[in-house]
Structures are given as C-alpha cells and as structure tokens.
Design a binder for these strands. Structure first.
Length: 390
DNA sequence: TTGGAGTCAATAGG
DNA sequence: CCTATTGACTCCAA
C-alpha cells in the first residue's frame, strides 16, 4: 500500500517551526514561533482555502457536528489527539474542549469556526475513518521503529556518561534548564476565594487584584489570568445551556445518553462551608443571590428582563439532532466541490418557538449583568458620558 | 491597556 | 495509551 494520498497537506500544516515530522521524543524546547507564514496550507482539493470556505460557510450546527464527530471517533477507537493533529491542526486538549463545549455558530469568530468547518468536511468524507486509521497505523509503526533503535542503544551497559541522544533533526536545544516553569496549580481554597471575589466583582480593579494576589499569596498575573479564564469559561457555559435549550428533543437512535453538561455547584458567596444540602440532580434551582459588592447601587430595581449583551434576537435554526448520514445528499451535482458538503443539512427547520428561558443559570446571568454594569460604570467615569448606546 | 477568543501544554484521572 | 481540566500565552479590537 502506497500510503495515504489524502489531502496530505492536511498535516504538513504548521510546517514552519513545528516538529510536525514526528512525535516529539525529545522536546523541541523553546516554543518560539516563527510567524504563521501560511495560515492554512491544507486547502485540500477544490481550490479554495479553508478560510475561504469558512467565510462562505452557511450556518453550521456545532452541537450536531461535535456530537457526530465524537460518535465516529469513539466508534472507531480513534483518539482526539490523532484527530486533532491531523484533521484540525489542534492539540488534544483543545479538541477535548471543543467537542465537549462547542460554542454556537453565531458566537464564533471566523477563526473559531474553522475547526467546525473542518469537522464538517471530515464528516462528509466517505473515507475519513479509513484515512485516520491509516495515520494511526503509520504512527505506531514509526513509534515501534524508534523504540527499537533506542533500546538497542541503551542496551550496551557501558559505563560512563550517558550520551545525550540527539533527536535527529538536530535542533540545538541543549540543556533545557529545568526552568520550565512549574505550572501553577491553585488550591481548591484559593479557587474558592477567587470565585467568591468574582461573584462580588467580575471585573476587579487593578487594586483589587493586587489585594487578592497578596492575600492569597499568588502572583498578580496569576490572579489576572484566573479572572480572564473564569469569565471566559463562565460565558461559555451560558452558551452551552443556550444550545441545549434550543436543542430539546434529542432522542437519537440508540446510544449516546447525551451527557448532561451541567456542572454548577459553586459555593455561595458568604462563608465557605458549603452548606449545600444534597442538591442532587439537575442544575437545580440555585438561589439567585445577586448582590454586587460595594460599588454603586440603589438601582431602581425594575425586574427588567435582561437582554443578552449582544445579539438581541437570532434564529439559530434548530437543526434536527438526529442528522443521519453525513454524506452529502443529492446536492452533489458538481465535481466534489467541498463546499457542497457544508450545505449538507437540508432539512427544513422545524422553526420552534423559543420557549421561556429555563430557570437555573440565574447566577450566571447575574454575572453577565455585572458585566454590563461594569461597562456602564466604566463608560460613565470616563470621558464625556453622553451617549450610552447599546 | 484591557478584555475576549482561541489555543497550548502540563497534568490529573481512567 | 486516552480524555478532561486549566493556568498561561498570542492575537486582536476597542
């Protein structure tokens, strides 16, 4: 068997500065980066680059796509690493995240949509699994080979120094100095404290951050990063609930028990001691305490409905969950233009009516509200307040 | 500069 | 091995 003639390029991606050639045995050390150079070298056939396809891609149902991908991968014992590296050009962790918490299409940036377009393309490739399995075999073969040579090398019970083995490729990486930054791991209590601080003030001032840092004995940058990450991840959970809400009737064929994404939990603000009773099950009704710490207040509390910070109204076109057959239906009139496969979700849209928001997630929305408030205050204190257009 | 979006990559569990 | 989590980084836009 020759080998995979597949879109080859697919992986030659990242060419520059990447240790792509083979699984790193020795670390490539410094992460430096040369410039991106060719962003996406893997257009595959049919001319246009992925970016172009992303640009003209119709709205895709990220939830359905990831669901399908997960199914195919697990059914065939293909790992996220392999899939990510060869098909998406992403690392395992990123793939895991993407598959577990896909953001709705309309909330994704152009860049963020790329992986989904690639997934859709992959799903519509009749030989996708076959190709990946080939890759898998090739990797194993390479691994075996490598292992062998190294074994034979270490066999000689020589005395003396252990010659550092050179990973071929001859990068000069020398001693890495173990200055590899140990990776901060926040203790559960520290996280608790930070979460508590977040509930009071999702957007702490530099001063507050400094205080938190010193109180918790953390670097300022760590606290800053934590807030960035936490906000970002909270936001994402909101998106997910949004998707699930819209994608109710998911009764696909036998199989996926559709894992609940709920996680919730969170201790309440005041005093740590998780008073939490046995809140079992669902994202149960959380007490929606939403008082923002200090700062302004005295709102003329009108129970106003909160409006999403953005995208006032949208019509995600609820796709039917059970999207069968990935292959492109009749559409294929033309010489396999890859784009066609992006339009493979013909089914008419059931156009369901948005049902009232579910309960729960109150807390999260509160944080979101804080977000808005924060911006308003910020705007107010700055230059001419005049227009608060939203 | 600040915040958001995407990712990476180390690491914790299976 | 594999997958999930998560602190840190890179890019970008305002």
């Amino acid at each position: 068997a020759p080998e995979s003639p597949l879109s080859s390029a697919e992986e030659s991606v990242k060419s520059l500065g990447e240790p792509a050639p083979q699984p790193p045995a020795a670390e490539p050390s410094e992460p430096s980066e040369s410039q991106p150079g060719t962003p996406l070298p893997a257009p595959g056939h049919s001319g246009l680059s992925i970016q172009e396809m992303v640009a003209m891609s119709p709205e895709l149902d990220t939830y359905v796509i990831t669901k399908k991908v997960k199914e195919v991968l697990t059914d065939n014992n293909l790992g996220q690493r392999l899939f990510g590296e060869t098909i998406l050009g992403l690392t395992q962790g990123s793939v895991s995240d993407l598959l577990a918490r896909p953001k709705p299409w309309h909330k994704l940036s152009l860049k963020g949509r790329e992986p989904f377009v690639r997934m859709q393309l992959w799903l519509s490739d009749p030989r996708n699994v076959e190709k990946l399995m080939d890759m898998k075999r090739m990797e194993k073969k390479a691994y075996m080979k490598r292992r062998h040579s190294s074994v034979s090398e270490s066999q000689p019970v020589d005395s003396g120094l252990q010659g550092s083995d050179f990973s071929q490729g001859g990068s000069p990486q020398h001693q890495q100095l173990q200055l590899k930054k140990p990776r901060v791991v926040l203790a559960p209590e520290e996280k608790e404290a930070l979460k508590r601080a977040y509930q009071q003030k999702p957007y702490p001032s530099p001063k507050t951050i400094e205080e938190l840092a010193s109180q918790l004995n953390l670097k300022t940058s760590t606290v800053i990063n934590w807030f960035h990450n936490y906000r970002s991840r909270i936001r994402r959970e909101l998106f997910i609930e949004e998707i699930q809400a819209g994608n109710q009737g998911a009764a696909s064929e036998g199989g996926s028990p559709s894992g609940r994404v709920s996680k919730a939990g969170e201790g309440d603000s005041c005093d740590g001691t998780e008073s939490d009773g046995t809140v079992e099950g669902r994202p149960g009704g959380a007490a929606g305490l939403e008082e923002y710490g200090g700062a302004s207040e005295g709102e003329g509390g009108d129970p106003k409905e909160e409006g999403g910070p953005e995208t006032p109204a949208r019509s995600p076109a609820p796709q039917d969950a059970t999207t069968s057959a990935s292959s492109v239906p009749g559409t294929s009139g033309h010489k396999g233009s890859a784009i066609a496969s992006l339009f493979s979700f013909p089914e008419s849209a059931p156009a369901a009516t948005r049902n009232p928001r579910d309960s729960s997630l109150r807390k999260k929305k509160a944080a979101n509200l804080n977000n808005i408030i924060h911006r308003l205050e910020k705007a107010a204190s700055r230059e001419e307040p005049s227009e608060w257009e939203f």
